[in-house]
């Protein structure tokens, strides 16, 4: 439990610092360091992201670093995307999920440096 809280703390710092949910820290930490299965780790991560992102959103919003019109359009798309993923997720193996996760992060990182 204490390691989960420590993982959450690290993820929270990164979430606030970088505007991400923190799942890119929580999921690998739970799977690689705590030995939690990929699917269970992903579910816990996503639920923890709800309060973590809320705190960051309030701080950024307080400093006027928000585009609410853009957020509305993004949310409309995101909710459709989440529904699609929910239908596909049960058919993928844990190993396959980890591979997709790693490939995604590498691709985004390279694009940000260019």
């Amino acid at each position: 439990m204490i390691w989960l809280a420590a993982t959450g703390l690290a993820a929270g710092v990164l979430s606030g610092l970088f505007g991400v949910g923190g799942g890119i820290v929580m999921v690998p930490a739970m799977v690689l360091m705590l030995g939690i299965a990929q699917r269970r780790a992903q579910a816990a991560s996503l639920a923890a992201i709800i309060p973590i992102a809320t705190v960051g959103a309030l701080v950024f919003g307080g400093a006027d670093n928000l585009d609410l019109a853009a957020a509305a359009a993004l949310i409309a798309g995101a909710l459709i995307g989440v529904r699609l993923a929910g239908r596909i997720l049960p058919r993928l193996s844990d190993a396959r999920l980890r591979q997709i996760f790693g490939a995604l992060l590498a691709a985004v990182a390279i694009a940000m440096f260019l």
């Binding site: 979430s15 970088f18 505007g19 991400v20 949910g21 923190g22 799942g23 890119i24 929580m26 999921v27 780790a41 992903q42 579910a43 816990a44 991560s45 996503l46 992201i49 992102a53 853009a70 359009a73 993004l74 949310i75 409309a76 798309g77 995101a78 909710l79 459709i80 995307g81 989440v82 529904r83 699609l84 993923a85 929910g86 596909i88 997720l89 993928l92 999920l97 997709i100 996760f101 995604l104 992060l105 985004v108 694009a111 940000m112």
Partner: peptide
């Protein structure tokens, strides 16, 4: 924005991340 949101939401649901790694870039 709709397309970016859709992709991010898909990844969020699939991989248990918020989707910020795609939304922000």
């Amino acid at each position: 924005l709709l397309a970016i949101g859709l992709s991010a939401g898909f990844l969020a649901g699939l991989l248990g991340i918020g989707g910020g790694v795609l939304l922000v870039p």
